[in-house]
Amino acid sequence: MENKLIEIQVYGAERICTSCVNLPSSKDTYEWLEAALSRKFPGQPFSITYIDIYQQQENPKRQEMTERIIEEDLFYPLVLIGDEIVGEGNPRLKAIVKEMERYGYQALEA
């Protein structure tokens, strides 16, 4: 099955989410996810983007999501694949991998 190139979006902020005090920062989570997914899906291209929720976004969908995170007090970092939220606050690698497999990616078994 040919996989579709997906974009993983990690929404976050410099300051740590109030409910996520003892967790890694959004930027740290983004970097960890990028490394972990590259190891899990070697040779299978995907893009991963970090989006600061307090910065104005040129892309209307991204701007809408940043406003939603702030207005609805969603936990961040928030991980989005397509239009699906696959992680919030302390995203689980297993859930993200499962979503990527839905798009045809094949995880390397550990």
Rank of each mutant, 00 (worst) to 15 (best):
residue 1 M to I: 10
residue 1 M to S: 13
residue 3 N to Y: 15
residue 4 K to Q: 08
residue 5 L to R: 13
residue 5 L to E: 11
residue 5 L to K: 11
residue 6 I to L: 14
residue 7 E to P: 00
residue 8 I to W: 06
residue 8 I to S: 09
residue 11 Y to E: 02
residue 11 Y to S: 06
residue 12 G to A: 10
residue 14 E to V: 05
residue 14 E to Y: 07
residue 15 R to C: 00
residue 15 R to W: 13
residue 16 I to R: 15
residue 16 I to L: 03
residue 16 I to K: 12
residue 19 S to C: 02
residue 19 S to T: 11
residue 19 S to G: 06
residue 20 C to I: 09
residue 22 N to V: 03
residue 24 P to Q: 03
residue 24 P to V: 11
residue 25 S to Y: 02
residue 26 S to L: 01
residue 26 S to H: 01
residue 27 K to D: 08
residue 27 K to M: 11
residue 27 K to A: 04
residue 29 T to R: 08
residue 29 T to N: 10
residue 29 T to Q: 08
residue 31 E to H: 11
residue 32 W to D: 13
residue 33 L to D: 05
residue 35 A to D: 14
residue 36 A to V: 15
residue 37 L to I: 07
residue 38 S to Y: 06
residue 39 R to L: 12
residue 39 R to S: 14
residue 40 K to S: 07
residue 42 P to A: 08
residue 42 P to T: 05
residue 44 Q to L: 02
residue 45 P to C: 03
residue 45 P to S: 12
residue 47 S to T: 14
residue 48 I to L: 06
residue 48 I to K: 09
residue 48 I to G: 13
residue 49 T to R: 11
residue 49 T to E: 05
residue 50 Y to T: 07
residue 50 Y to S: 06
residue 51 I to F: 01
residue 53 I to N: 00
residue 53 I to K: 01
residue 55 Q to I: 14
residue 56 Q to Y: 02
residue 56 Q to I: 09
residue 57 Q to A: 05
residue 57 Q to D: 04
residue 57 Q to P: 02
residue 57 Q to W: 03
residue 57 Q to N: 05
residue 57 Q to R: 07
residue 58 E to F: 08
residue 58 E to D: 14
residue 61 K to P: 00
residue 62 R to C: 03
residue 62 R to H: 15
residue 63 Q to K: 05
residue 63 Q to L: 09
residue 63 Q to V: 00
residue 63 Q to Y: 05
residue 64 E to R: 07
residue 67 E to Q: 10
residue 68 R to S: 12
residue 68 R to C: 03
residue 71 E to V: 02
residue 73 D to K: 08
residue 74 L to G: 00
residue 75 F to A: 14
residue 75 F to G: 03
residue 75 F to W: 04
residue 76 Y to P: 10
residue 76 Y to D: 01
residue 77 P to A: 00
residue 77 P to L: 08
residue 78 L to I: 00
residue 78 L to Q: 01
residue 81 I to G: 04
residue 81 I to W: 11
residue 83 D to L: 04
residue 83 D to W: 03
residue 83 D to H: 01
residue 83 D to A: 06
residue 85 I to T: 11
residue 86 V to L: 00
residue 87 G to Y: 02
residue 87 G to A: 15
residue 87 G to F: 13
residue 87 G to H: 09
residue 88 E to Y: 04
residue 90 N to S: 13
residue 91 P to N: 12
residue 92 R to N: 14
residue 93 L to G: 05
residue 93 L to C: 11
residue 94 K to P: 12
residue 95 A to F: 10
residue 96 I to N: 12
residue 97 V to Y: 05
residue 99 E to G: 07
residue 99 E to Q: 14
residue 99 E to N: 07
residue 101 E to W: 09
residue 101 E to I: 01
residue 101 E to G: 05
residue 102 R to E: 15
residue 102 R to L: 03
residue 104 G to A: 03
residue 105 Y to A: 04
residue 106 Q to T: 12
residue 107 A to M: 04
residue 107 A to I: 01
residue 107 A to Q: 00
residue 108 L to Q: 07
residue 108 L to V: 07
residue 109 E to C: 10
residue 109 E to Q: 12
residue 109 E to A: 14
residue 110 A to C: 01
residue 110 A to R: 04
residue 110 A to S: 13
